[in-house]
Design a protein around this nucleic acid. Structure first.
Lengths: 126, 126
DNA sequence: CTGGATCCGCAGAGATACTG
DNA sequence: CAGTATCTCTGCGGATCCAG
């Protein structure tokens, strides 16, 4: 990874791992998973159903990634049938707040964005 | 009432503008560009230099996308050599605030994330 | 200076089948 | 229930050249 330390925070004149961390929420499902998992604890299948459209593979991969990043805690209950619960860590909950700001913005301006796109396309038609 | 199930399905659904908008900031460079362009107005080359690592092609593509979304305003000054400036729209500036929360979080927890990864890898060693 | 066009490699992401 | 293992396809993203 770290093919390039993108100095996204170049504006701050400081080099930090910001871009790397940001890259983790930059995936197609990362944000959705974190938001869905915010109602901790949540089980694997619940996540799979909540985030409709996600494949089992992707959910697993992203869950592992989030766990590795220290954002999720994976708890295995030794029962039958298997029961695994995912819980947001402290810092993940903090991140979640920022994420809610994002989704809130998207909710408020979704229509405006759509309109802008339509206008742009219209102006750009052949 | 107790919406124990957040409307994540709406997030993952293409019918809801939230996921679409979210998808736009989910790219590898989108966030960086928006943050860099926050100091409006900014010229093409300035952006290219600020966001080191980005290719000309990607910068152009993302800039077009952001413009289409109504987040950036592209102003062409009819002079030689060409001068083009990009400015954040009102709603983009609002979005930028949320983005700053994100980068702030990344800044604060970057080290912790790195540590978590190291721990995970160690525990997962071969 | 500010782009557009093209070629191409690689990681992301879907579908499916199998296992503890 | 909760994953893992392949296989494949798509599109992002990089490099390079060309143009207004």
């Amino acid at each position: 990874m770290s093919q390039s330390h993108i100095d996204v925070s170049a504006l701050a004149s400081e080099a930090c791992p910001v871009s790397e961390v940001l890259d983790h929420v930059s995936g197609k499902w990362s944000i959705g998973i974190l938001v869905a998992a915010a109602q901790s604890p949540v089980r694997f299948t619940e996540l799979e159903r909540s985030i409709r459209g996600i494949s089992r593979r992707m959910l697993t991969l992203k869950l592992r990634k989030l766990e590795r990043d220290g954002l999720l805690v994976r708890t295995v209950h030794p029962v039958v049938p298997p029961k695994v619960e995912y819980t947001l860590t402290e810092m993940a909950q903090e991140l979640h707040k920022s994420l809610l700001e994002l989704t809130g913005w998207a909710r408020r301006h979704g229509a405006a964005v759509a309109a802008a796109q339509a206008a742009y396309d219209h102006e750009h038609k052949g």
